[in-house]
Design a protein around this nucleic acid. Structure first.
Length: 220
DNA sequence: ATCCCGAGGG
DNA sequence: CCCTCTGGAT
């Protein structure tokens, strides 16, 4: 995708949705951090169902520790990977109190030092809470970036670097959420809805989306 | 490269 | 049935 096409793409995203936001439900930076940890390989919708009950009982790190791993497990059993996640959420809450006075640190290294928090989760927190121009590359963005030609890369780190290079500065703060939402509702993994895609004419895969090359489950 | 791991969609 | 969902730790 050309530089001009990329600028046009984000101009359209911005016009259609001037203030994109996460669909995860949270009432504090701490709750956003927990929600993002829980969202690994799970849908936002499923995470919200679980966190409504979880945060009602444990809205703070202190309360989460009191609730304990078994208690957390009860609330998040409907989400995949729940054993690892329950353990991480409680351990992470301890460490937030020990190291950061119970606050979420605005620092990537401090965030990734927490259990269950990797680069992608840290980037979401830095962008969503602290409004830093990070690019969290999740399953949606990785797929969309490669498919459309916005930013090609063999792994998520390569795509992140390419996006930081190619997305025009003025759009960088909101690009993450535009791309997530577009990937979730339009440029989907299995059957992309190109017929209602805002940027169809700019996409490298236009007119090929219904003819996946043999041997490529996710076509180009 | 593998494991973790339930719900929803096709 | 198989694939996908805002991944991380080993």
């Amino acid at each position: 995708m050309s530089k001009a096409a990329i600028a046009e793409m984000f101009a359209r995203f911005q016009a259609a949705n001037p203030n994109p936001e996460t669909e995860l439900e949270y009432a504090s930076p701490y709750q956003l951090l927990v929600a993002v940890v829980l969202s690994a390989q799970a849908t936002d919708k499923g995470v919200n169902i679980a966190t409504r009950k979880l945060f009602a009982e444990a809205p703070t790190p202190e309360a989460m520790i009191t609730l304990g791993e078994a208690g957390v497990t009860e609330h998040i059993k409907t989400i995949g990977l729940f054993r690892n996640k329950a353990k991480n959420v409680v351990a992470l809450s301890y460490l937030l109190l020990e190291r950061h006075g119970g606050e979420v640190p605005a620092d990537r290294d401090a965030l990734t030092a927490l259990p269950g928090v990797g680069r992608k989760t840290a980037n979401v927190v830095l962008n969503t809470i602290f409004r830093q121009p990070t690019m969290a590359v999740d399953t949606h963005i990785f797929r969309l970036a490669n498919r459309t030609g916005l930013a090609a890369g063999k792994d998520v780190d390569a795509v992140e670097a390419a996006l930081l290079r190619r997305v025009p500065k003025p759009y960088l703060l909101d690009a993450h959420h535009w791309l997530i939402l577009h990937g979730r509702y339009v440029c989907t993994a299995r059957k992309p809805a190109c017929d209602r895609c805002l940027v169809r004419d700019l996409c490298n895969s236009r007119d090929k989306t219904d003819l996946p090359p043999p041997g490529s489950p996710d076509h180009v």
